[in-house]
């Protein structure tokens, strides 16, 4: 029990102290930490420990979809390294550690890559609509404004209940990018005046659809109706093995925070934190693997997990 408390603290420490780090990367780093501190015991024990840690991290109050995709990727990473072929646990651990560091380093490079791909799609004088706060959207806007010297205007939805849109606006102000904070309910009102929609994602599912902060689906519907391109920016470690067909299909632990679920209150009375946007509403996905159409996402996942 002592140990699991530590896991959660370690994870939450990263999430709180390093706001630049995505929840998926924080989860992977936590699992790496477990791997390093794990004594020279059996592999069976190690995998049990990792499984427990994953469960533990899912109780944190942050994007659970990202945690899930990060942990799934890490599990896959362990099987793919070939470390399990080693006869003794010490060698096996050494290989994993070494590979793990390369792996983490590659994860750091993903966001600048996406920003480079996405920036050319922003043209001078355009108006852009974004939802809530996304690190990768912010970086792409920064790349377009500072490196490519484009001038554009950003509309940001306030994004209740946590008003994360306001934080996004503060960041844009720091970068001297002109922006307007709008009401969530004004999405339809501004849609006719914007040229494109840029959103991040907490998870990209097998169909090529996305799971993101509640309100994203509404925005996608509005954009489709008004024939505006709807672009998603997401790192490939957010690809998650889920195939939701509709909103009801999303697992409860993704929709509600763990504290809400634990409190035992009637979930019908609670607000969902995320929604699912089907692939038909997404124009393109910008990932570190390149610019993908939604149908290319399943290809990537099959390559990895088959």
């Amino acid at each position: 029990m002592e140990n699991t408390r530590n896991v959660l603290d370690f994870f939450q420490n990263i999430v709180e102290k390093e706001p630049e780090v995505s929840a998926a990367v924080a989860a992977i780093r936590t699992l790496m930490h477990i791997l390093e501190t794990f004594g020279d015991r059996t592999l069976r024990g190690l995998s049990e420990e990792l499984r427990k840690a994953t469960e533990e991290m899912k109780t944190a109050d942050c994007s659970i979809t990202s945690v899930q995709s990060g942990c799934e990727l890490f599990q896959r990473f362990i099987t793919l390294t070939g470390a399990l072929d080693q006869s003794n646990i010490k060698e096996c651990k050494d290989i994993m550690k070494e590979r793990g560091e390369i792996f983490l380093r590659k994860l750091q490079e993903t966001r600048p890559k996406i920003a480079k791909l996405g920036a050319p799609f922003i043209l001078d004088g355009q108006k852009i609509l974004t939802h809530s706060k996304s690190r990768v959207v912010l970086q792409t806007l920064r790349e377009a404004a500072l490196t490519s010297k484009k001038r554009f205007h950003v509309f940001i939805t306030e994004s209740y209940p946590d008003r994360s849109g306001a934080l996004m606006r503060d960041e844009l102000l720091k970068l001297n990018i002109s922006s307007t904070l709008i009401l969530d309910s004004a999405m339809g009102y501004v849609m006719e005046s914007v040229d494109l929609v840029l959103v991040g994602a907490e998870g990209v599912v097998e169909s090529g659809g996305i799971i993101n902060k509640v309100g994203t689906y509404t925005m996608a519907l509005c954009a489709k109706e008004m024939h505006k391109p709807f672009y998603v920016l997401a790192e490939s470690f957010k690809f998650v093995r889920l195939y939701p067909l509709n909103q009801r299909d999303l697992p409860q632990e993704l929709k509600f925070s763990s504290s809400t679920i634990k409190s035992g209150s009637n979930l019908l009375d609670q607000h969902p934190q995320v929604d699912y946007t089907p692939p038909g509403y997404i124009t393109l996905l910008f990932t570190d693997l390149g610019i993908l159409t939604p149908s290319a996402v399943s290809d990537e996942l099959i390559k990895l997990y088959l």
């Binding site: 990727l73 990473f77 490939s236 990537e300």
Partner: peptide, 8 residues
């Protein structure tokens, strides 16, 4: 591919 990132 994702696989390449993983297997390094």
């Amino acid at each position: 591919s994702l696989q390449k990132i993983l297997t390094a």
